[in-house]
């Protein structure tokens, strides 16, 4: 952690042609399928979701109709806008770490009804206490919602980044499962 990498500190400007016509960045709401990696990269295995998106990107990304989104701790913003948006993906695949007493690193798909209450809060970010945004997306908006979960092994009491070995080893298995949902 203490290795210095001062690359970029001496940069003063980036040379872009002011007249350059660069298109607006892609809107993830336009995608047919959206894979959303959720979690906090500072809380051990909770960083599974963001690590999973990086894992996919490092292996060539996804087909054109599929969007990959590292929502990190900002999933509220993503889902909140999606619930009431005029356009939205036909299917979303949430990839997240859960603690459901399974074997560490086990990859499995869960039904929304099985989402642990704490995670339901996470998904809805406390705005819909009697339901959650994922269920709203499915029931009110006609979006197919799939949840791919990985059983955590390590959630540190103090903030520390990095995945446990068993969860890191699950990334490839999670990719195989998620890609079947494209």
């Amino acid at each position: 952690m203490t290795e210095r990498s001062p690359i970029g500190l001496a940069v003063t400007s980036v040379h872009r042609d002011p007249a350059e016509e660069r298109p607006e960045p892609e809107d993830f709401l336009d995608k047919e399928v959206l894979v959303i990696g959720c979690g906090n990269v500072m809380i051990g295995d909770d960083g599974l979701g963001p690590a999973f998106i990086k894992h996919l990107e490092a292996r060539g990304g996804a087909p054109a109709h599929v969007g990959l989104l590292d929502a990190g701790t900002g999933v509220r913003t993503v889902l909140f806008g999606m619930v009431l948006a005029e356009k939205r993906p036909k299917r979303i695949v949430i990839v997240d770490a859960v603690d459901m007493g399974r074997a560490p690193g086990e990859v499995f798909e869960i039904d929304l009804a099985e989402v642990p209450p704490l995670k339901a809060d996470d998904f809805s970010m406390h705005q819909l206490p009697t339901s959650n945004l994922l269920r709203e997306l499915r029931d009110q908006c006609g979006v197919e919602v799939r949840v791919v979960a990985v059983q955590v092994a390590w959630l540190p009491d103090e903030l520390r980044g990095g995945l446990s070995d068993s969860v890191a080893a699950s990334l490839e298995r999670a990719r195989e499962l998620v890609e079947r949902l494209y």
Partner: peptide, 21 residues
């Protein structure tokens, strides 16, 4: 505490992961 020992120029990137609010 998490911040200690990190290059200070990384801090603006790190702190955005604390919370998405």
């Amino acid at each position: 505490k998490f911040c200690q020992g990190r290059p200070v120029e990384e801090m603006p990137r790190i702190v955005t992961s604390i919370c998405g609010v």
